[in-house]
Design a protein around this nucleic acid. Structure first.
Lengths: 350, 350
DNA sequence: ATGAAAGCGCTAACAT
DNA sequence: ATGTTAGCGCTTTCAT
């Protein structure tokens, strides 16, 4: 074939980019020397190196990443898979990941695994990722046990964020104890009719977080010998709207709760709005605590559990980079701190 | 050299993936035929094709994208550059872009151009993008005039979102008239002391949006022969916190405004919280209108301008795909609709 | 309808 | 310190 004529010529103006060979010719050296010189490898005379740099500069040479990838097997790119790009938590984590990857010279590929099908297609088979990325950050996406083996064998480095999936490094928060802390806060305020708005996507995503927060909720109640009315548990979808609907349901129960723990701030805020629509005042009539410390939580006066979202992403990326550099699994597991932020949405019962 | 031994072997378990040659051998045909068969090209006997498919399946063959890219010059990937990954607007646009790209089989590379340096490095030189992506979506990132030519020549397809930069296709909303609509709403309610919280990042990003919304604000006032007090214009950064600070300043002026137009919902919400902290009630003491229709705007009862954020991203991606397919600039410019959402944060003066 | 073979632009042995 | 050269795994022209 030869020259796959860089098609898609914009009105035929496509300038032919310089190759390593052009640089070699211009500098009067071999391509090997150019390669070494430009990549800062040893065994290049200083004078030669600067001559090569000069030539590369003149020709505006840019190495073709695809050729490098093909030759080295390193993509210098990492992939991040999230259930939902538009979600607040995920966007913050993504920002954190990007912030450490870009300076390290890695490209960031984003994959959304919103639907079970996407997830299946994406996670069920390690191979597609193989030459595309050097590593993968899985955010709140559990790898089904069956798929772990193939992934490990595939040679793609993975780290998980939000939940731990051995043997991969991970960065998590202690969702269970943080949730318990949130609920204890309510209990300490004298509340006994405490409701839960959780999120039930475990099935779809092998998503452990909702279950853990739910468990923390029950832990706190159990410590005091309390339990929750079945009708005081509603399931949302991590959205404002679903939180509103959940609260609507809670307020329609025979004994409405005096306090509510929502597994995310989005849902907590939906719940607050529902309360308002029902003519109730927060925290006078009902106390509400959320989880995340969303950008807008403070403006809402929402009591919540803060988690360092951006740092979580950054840490995940750093772990991945470390693993890549080590060339072997590091087995690191970072557990990031959480903090109860007491604001105006909770108050002593009565 | 040969075999760049797919290093980073996970405990040496790295399974050697199948190449096109393996498939050819297994199917008893040549690699050329395998290539044709698997890509659905014509001139392959049906029986041959199925034999090849069988073999590929058996060997779990996955073509190496890097090799294809090198051979064809098509990356089957597109890049999206945003000023700020964690911003609500950008995360929604990103989600929209991903939703159309993924089904089309394109990888999505995300670049953050938060700092002027990043922007400069990224936009100032089209070449790095060249073999990495087939096209680029620039979200609210204006290309300095000097850089347009090189980009056009580089053969990378670009579309801009949020602002138009000829000759690239674009998707925008009419920020100026939408802002005027928002302010007219305030004026129609009898307000005369109307303040503006804008965002002044034009310099950093060649970012046209703030200026347009600002212009719309002035348009509406001018229609009524009104003008704004200089101290009634504050500049934020599209964040809740900066909106709060801006409102603090507005409320400290000698004649505090009775109404405020904020150039984004985040800032509007910060302003609402500031008003509350100052003991004021919205809309009783001050009316506030925002821009975006953020996920949480409805819960806040915030009157605002809705723009179809996800669709904007989707449309941008679609335009890019069309341009790629056409192999030539399409010159399409989509102007998406906006809508005034009247809620509880605005009311008649008095 | 199929195959042989020449690249695509790099990197990395292996000389020298 | 530098050059030669054989790949990396595909695609595509040109024969057949």
């Amino acid at each position: 074939m030869t020259a796959p004529r860089r098609s898609r010529s914009r009105a035929g103006s496509t300038a032919p980019r310089a190759t390593i060979e052009d640089v070699a010719r211009q500098a009067g050296v071999s391509v090997a020397t150019v390669s070494r010189a430009l990549r800062g490898l040893p065994n290049v005379a200083a004078s030669t190196r600067s001559r090569v740099e000069r030539a590369a500069e003149d020709l505006r040479y840019r190495p073709d990443p695809n050729a490098s990838r093909l030759a080295t097997g390193q993509a210098h790119a990492i992939g991040v898979a999230v259930p939902n790009i538009g979600g607040w938590y995920f966007s913050q984590v993504l920002a954190g990941v990007e912030a450490v990857l870009a300076p390290a010279g890695f490209d960031l590929l984003v994959y959304a695994a919103a639907e079970p099908d996407d997830r299946r297609r994406f996670l069920g088979d390690a191979l597609p990722a193989r030459q595309r990325v050097d590593g993968l950050v899985l955010v709140d996406l559990g790898l089904p046990a069956d798929d772990v083996g193939p992934w490990v064998d595939s040679g793609v480095c993975v780290v998980t964020i939000g939940q731990r999936t051995d043997p991969f490094p991970s960065v998590t928060v202690d969702n269970r104890s943080a949730a318990a802390t949130a609920v204890r806060h309510l209990l300490n305020l004298g509340h006994r009719e405490v409701a839960l708005i959780d999120a039930g996507d475990e099935k779809r995503f092998h998503f452990a977080v909702p279950g853990l927060r739910q468990a923390g909720f029950h832990d706190a109640l159990a410590e005091r010998g309390l339990s929750v009315r079945p009708e005081h548990v509603e399931t949302g979808l991590f959205t404002v709207e679903s939180g509103r609907a959940a609260m609507d349901a809670l307020l329609a129960t025979s004994v409405p709760p005096t306090a509510v723990f929502a597994a995310s701030d989005e849902m907590a805020i939906g719940a607050m709005d529902s309360a308002r629509q029902h003519g109730l005042t927060v925290p006078h009539d009902v106390s509400i605590v959320g989880f995340d410390d969303h950008d807008m939580a403070a403006a809402w006066g929402l009591t919540t559990i803060r988690q360092p979202v951006v740092d979580i992403g950054g840490r995940g990326a750093a772990l991945l980079l470390a693993e890549l550099a080590a060339g072997a699994p590091t087995g690191d597991h970072a557990v990031m701190p959480t903090q109860l932020m007491v604001r105006r949405s909770t108050r002593r019962l009565g």
